[in-house]
Simulated assay, not measured.
Amino acid sequence: MDSYLDIHLLPDPEFEEQQLMNALFSKLHRAIGATSPGQVGISFPGVAKRLGNHLRLHGTAQVLDKLMAQPWLQGMKDYCRISERQMVPSNVRYMAVRRVQAKSAHNKRQRSIRKGWLNAEEALTKIPDSRQRQLTLPYIEMKSLSNGNPMRVYIEHSSLRETPVTGLFNAYGLSATATIPWF
Rank of each mutant, 00 (worst) to 15 (best):
175 S>M: 07
165 V>T: 15
24 L>S: 06
58 H>W: 01
53 N>K: 13
150 P>Q: 04
170 N>D: 10
85 R>F: 02
54 H>N: 08
11 P>N: 01
31 A>W: 01
92 V>P: 12
182 W>I: 13
11 P>M: 01
15 F>E: 00
160 L>G: 07
95 M>E: 04
78 D>E: 09
18 Q>F: 11
47 V>S: 08
53 N>Y: 09
102 A>I: 02
144 S>Y: 00
168 L>R: 15
179 T>D: 01
97 V>Q: 03
81 R>V: 15
102 A>T: 03
28 L>A: 04
164 P>R: 01
83 S>Q: 05
7 I>R: 04
138 P>D: 03
4 Y>Q: 08
113 I>M: 05
94 Y>R: 08
113 I>Q: 03
169 F>R: 12
20 L>H: 07
123 A>R: 11
69 A>F: 02
183 F>W: 06
158 S>C: 11
18 Q>P: 12
65 D>G: 12
176 A>E: 04
33 G>A: 05
180 I>V: 15
79 Y>I: 14
56 R>E: 01
45 P>V: 05
11 P>D: 00
169 F>M: 08
151 M>A: 05
43 S>Q: 04
31 A>P: 14
75 G>T: 15
165 V>K: 12
66 K>N: 13
98 R>D: 00
149 N>P: 07
9 L>F: 13
70 Q>N: 10
141 E>C: 09
63 V>S: 02
61 A>F: 05
3 S>Q: 04
12 D>E: 06
123 A>T: 14
7 I>P: 15
65 D>V: 13
90 S>P: 12
23 A>F: 07
56 R>M: 13
52 G>K: 06
97 V>N: 03
19 Q>P: 13
3 S>T: 14
122 E>A: 06
36 S>C: 10
71 P>N: 02
28 L>Y: 04
28 L>C: 03
70 Q>K: 10
15 F>R: 05
64 L>I: 01
103 K>H: 11
180 I>D: 02
46 G>E: 13
180 I>Y: 00
33 G>Y: 04
118 L>R: 10
114 R>M: 07
116 G>E: 01
142 M>C: 10
120 A>V: 15
163 T>C: 06
47 V>W: 00
79 Y>K: 07
2 D>I: 14
143 K>E: 04
87 M>K: 14
89 P>H: 00
101 Q>P: 10
103 K>T: 15
15 F>N: 07
41 G>A: 02
122 E>D: 11
49 K>T: 15
60 T>N: 08
181 P>H: 01
123 A>Q: 10
93 R>Y: 04
87 M>C: 08
100 V>N: 06
59 G>P: 15
56 R>N: 14
79 Y>A: 08
157 H>C: 09
132 Q>N: 07
126 K>F: 03
19 Q>C: 10
68 M>I: 00
142 M>G: 08
15 F>M: 03
128 P>L: 03
110 Q>S: 10
143 K>L: 09
107 N>I: 11
103 K>N: 13
150 P>I: 04
79 Y>D: 02
182 W>S: 10
69 A>S: 15
7 I>F: 02
61 A>D: 01
38 G>H: 03
54 H>P: 12
138 P>R: 06
56 R>W: 03
50 R>W: 06
73 L>Q: 08
